[in-house]
């Protein structure tokens, strides 16, 4: 392995990692928003909307992000909806991640015992206050492991952004391999940079999970 080459490439990878992170975080934030809205709609079984949410979740979970991106980036402009590549990446990630986050939130909401709602109601709490003070805090902490897993999953998924010519880590690696044939060095840096992004989140996830398990909600 040629270390000079590696040090020469580091700035390029840094720039790419920044793009990966920036778009990844934005996409995840929107995915959380979409997921929370969908989960609440499903939880309260809001008529009509719950059907739309159900269809969206199935469509989003049963198709690959790459295909979703191709459709948004290359397909939609043909019917007059032009999207910038970065926006497309964020929208795609939010479309995919929204359903995963919705499932995480929903299972958290449903894991809260029904009697919790009932005792809040019988203390005179309104529906909104019951959700805010009683159900949500419990549901969120139950969802944490699934939630962290989704964040890692979505950050990993950003690796297909290169297909819509966003200069992320994958794009940079592929580009450099094509140009200079320093394959081993390029792949090494690729792995290192993904580890720098993903490992801390993965460790944080397992720490949080262990903590919550010992906190022992419920009984």
């Amino acid at each position: 392995m040629n270390w000079d080459v590696i040090f020469k490439y580091i700035p390029l990878y840094k720039k790419a990692a920044w793009l990966t992170l920036r778009l990844g975080v934005l996409g995840i934030v929107f995915a959380i928003l979409v997921g929370a809205i969908c989960a609440v709609i499903a939880y309260y079984r809001v008529p009509v909307l719950k059907r739309i949410v159900a269809v969206y979740i199935e469509l989003s979970r049963n198709t690959p992000l790459l295909v979703q991106l191709f459709f948004i980036y290359y397909g939609l402009p043909k019917v007059g909806v032009s999207v910038d590549a970065e926006v497309c990446g964020v929208v795609g990630l939010a479309f995919l991640g929204g359903s995963y986050m919705a499932e995480a939130f929903r299972s958290g909401l449903e894991a809260v015992d029904k009697i919790q709602t009932e005792s809040a109601y019988s203390l005179g709490l309104s529906r909104a206050k019951t959700m805010r003070y009683v159900i949500l805090p419990q549901a969120v902490s139950i969802s944490v492991p699934a939630f962290m897993a989704n964040i890692i999953f979505l950050l990993k998924e950003t690796s297909v952004f290169s297909a819509i010519s966003l200069m992320d880590l994958m794009f940079t690696a592929k580009d450099l391999i094509g140009l200079y044939y320093k394959t081993t060095e390029c792949l090494f840096l690729l792995v290192v940079f993904y580890l720098i992004i993903l490992l801390p989140i993965s460790i944080l996830g397992s720490v949080l999970e262990r903590r919550l398990r010992y906190a022992g909600f419920g009984a």
Binding site: E157, Y181, T183, T184, L187, V191, L198, S202
Partner: peptide
């Protein structure tokens, strides 16, 4: 197993494909 699970599958594909063919 943790390494395989944490790496994007794209990265794994690149490693196997480029490393074996090119290197």
């Amino acid at each position: 197993l943790e390494f395989i699970r944490i790496m994007p599958q794209m990265v794994l594909l690149f490693i196997v494909f480029f490393e074996t063919t090119r290197v």
